[in-house]
């Protein structure tokens, strides 16, 4: 049986990634070169630093993806790259590389929406997930609650009005002097803390939009007023507040639209408390839950390949005039 092989490239933020995926679901290779150590000393992603690192890493990462997949470039059927949303300088490296490879290999090219790719990370491991689904997409740049009625058909139910959930983690971690990135550090500390501080649950019962800026401020104010509080307790209480808001709204949405299941995606979906809470709520409500492997939650190119294949099957290739769009929205 011939397989349809997609080579996908992802450079929207600070991970240089390439993957080879067969038929939109079988991952033959998924290489991610993270720049997290480079950015850690700045306490966040510095766009120019990220763009320069992408140029240095792009061909070695693609080469490794092809080698690990055990294929030659002549086997590739489609070359894909994330074209937005993200950091413009970073996106352009991946888009330019993918279009160039498509041109010299005489293969079709497709530009992929990074948000759509995150939604399709769920289908990599469970290709037969039943629709409709509610997907909670949470990362350093996005916090969105999406209803997916059919493949490639979405409705954004709500999103953050200020900081993304991952951004709130980073900012709280930075204020507490914990380092970068904040998510894994707070997650780790929260394991041994007590959730005794009642931080606010912003907009808990107000629709599907989120707001995390006020929560971040109350954590900072609390620490100023109570300097002796164990840092683990602050981490646990903050995390409980974030997860409570995310899961309460996701559950409400899933019930309201009569979803068959609830999925999570994005970097914050790697958070152990969020994963646990999603599984719990689905068990309570009799929903099918799907929590992707951590490596498919954070930015990766396998999910880009999955979305690329789905899009290509429906819409065909993108033009070689395709550029990057830092503010690309999810098509509704």
């Amino acid at each position: 049986m011939t397989q349809n092989l997609v080579l996908a490239i992802e450079t929207s933020c600070d991970e240089t990634a390439a993957a080879v995926v067969a038929d939109g679901k079988n991952v033959l290779s998924s290489v991610v070169s993270s720049q997290v150590d480079i950015h850690a000393r700045y306490g966040g992603v510095v766009p120019e630093v990220a763009s320069r690192a992408h140029v240095d890493l792009i061909t070695p990462v693609i080469a490794q993806a092809l080698v690990e997949a055990g294929i030659d470039h002549s086997d590739v059927d489609l070359v894909a790259a994330t074209r937005g949303p993200g950091l413009i300088g970073s996106l352009l490296v991946g888009v330019s590389a993918a279009k160039s490879l498509a041109l010299v290999w005489k293969k079709p090219f497709i530009g992929v929406n990074h948000l759509e790719a995150h939604l399709y990370s769920c289908f990599l491991e469970e290709p037969d997930l039943e629709l409709p689904l509610v997907v909670l997409l949470v990362s350093g740049g996005h916090t969105m609650l999406i209803a997916m009625d059919d493949h490639l058909s979405y409705k954004i139910l709500g999103q953050t009005l200020d900081d993304a959930a991952g951004e709130a983690y980073d900012k709280v971690a930075r204020y507490l002097g914990l380092g970068y990135p904040g998510g894994p550090i707070i997650d780790q500390l929260a394991v041994s803390g007590k959730p005794e501080i009642e931080f606010p649950r912003p907009m808990l019962h107000e629709g599907y939009n989120f707001s995390f800026s006020g929560l971040k401020t109350s954590v900072i104010n609390y620490v100023r007023k109570n300097p002796g509080t164990p840092i683990e307790d602050i981490a646990t209480s903050f995390q409980e507040a974030v997860v409570d808001v995310l899961v309460t709204k996701a559950k409400k949405a899933a019930i309201e639209i009569n979803a068959k299941g609830l999925c999570i995606g994005g970097g914050v979906a790697a958070n152990s408390r969020l994963r646990e809470a999603v599984l719990d709520v689905c068990l309570q409500e009799g929903l099918h839950s799907f929590v992707p492997s951590r490596s498919y939650c954070t930015d990766n190119a396998a999910m880009v390949a999955a979305a690329a294949w789905r899009r290509y099957s429906q819409d065909g290739p993108s033009s070689l005039y395709t550029g990057a769009d830092p503010n690309l929205r999810l098509p509704e």
């Binding site: 992408h54 140029v55 792009i58 061909t59 693609i62 080469a63 352009l92 490296v93 991946g94 330019s96 590389a97 993918a98 279009k99 160039s100 490879l101 041109l103 010299v104």
Partner: peptide, 8 residues
């Protein structure tokens, strides 16, 4: 990025 990709 285009040039190194073409050469690669």
């Amino acid at each position: 990025a285009a040039a190194i990709s073409i050469a690669f």
